[in-house]
């Protein structure tokens, strides 16, 4: 009994310590930001002329600091590869293809069924809006791709027995990563179109769409892997 109280006290202490750290860091980071404003001022003053993006965040992650985006995409791909090949091996994948039942409605909750049916088209619409309009409004490829993955989960809630080939999704994700690597090489690093407004906008939209689909495939693989194949034993 004493031990459980001790553990509870320790939990309280850790949470309060974390809260104090968070507040401290908030205050500290504000002061640091004020001391070196030159780079921030450059980004905030010239991003529209340089990159043709109305959203300064998109200008930074797709143009000024596109290296960061490339490595972020690489990180997601590596984690997908880890999830598929190392954590479970390939044994569950074979079992899944045998166990394929027909969908029947009685098993599902009526509320979930109807509400997902209503929400689904809006989910797709907002996802594509966020991806395609990511350079002008808040959002971008990553967020839109994550919403698309949520739509995939919603589809799972309605059709739990539907089969989805994860190998194709994983291959598509790798292929998209190669394209994501090559597009900035031709647009940004060549420096031929740096002042051209229309080319810059085409570049931003293309990159957002590519990143969106890559994140969709990657998160989709991870979620399906966790939700589907863990159930079988």
């Amino acid at each position: 009994m004493n031990l459980t109280k001790l553990i509870l006290g320790l939990r309280f202490f850790l949470v309060i310590l974390g809260a104090f750290l968070m507040i401290f860091l908030f205050i500290e980071s504000k002061e640091i930001e004020v001391t070196i404003p030159s780079l921030k001022n450059y980004y905030l003053n010239f991003y529209y002329e340089d990159t043709a993006a109305k959203n300064s965040v998109a200008a930074i992650y797709l143009n000024y600091r596109v290296f960061d985006t490339l490595f972020e995409a690489l990180m997601l791909m590596v984690s997908v590869m880890e999830v598929i090949h190392i954590s479970w091996g390939n044994k569950h994948l074979i079992q899944r293809s045998i166990l394929r039942k027909e969908f029947y409605k009685n098993n599902q909750s009526e509320v979930v069924l109807h509400f997902v049916g209503i929400i689904f088209p809006f989910l797709l619409m907002i996802a594509f809006y966020i991806i395609i309009n990511g350079h002008n409004s808040p959002g971008g490829g990553f967020q839109g791709g994550a919403i698309l993955a949520t739509a995939l989960i919603a589809r799972y809630l309605i059709y739990p027995n539907e089969y989805l080939d994860l190998n194709i999704l994983e291959k598509l994700e790798k292929f998209l990563f190669v394209i994501i690597l090559s597009v900035p090489i031709f647009f940004i690093f060549m420096n031929d179109f740096s002042g051209n407004f229309i080319f810059n906008q085409i570049y931003l939209v293309t990159m957002n769409i590519l990143i969106g689909f890559k994140v969709f495939f990657g998160l989709g693989v991870i979620l399906y892997r966790f939700i589907f194949f863990e159930r079988l034993n």
Partner: peptide, 18 residues
């Protein structure tokens, strides 16, 4: 708002579901 979007989809949506 960009970070808020990411938190909505990842933190509130996918993580809770998972």
């Amino acid at each position: 708002p960009d970070v808020a979007f990411a938190e909505t989809t990842i933190g509130l949506g996918l993580t809770s579901l998972l």
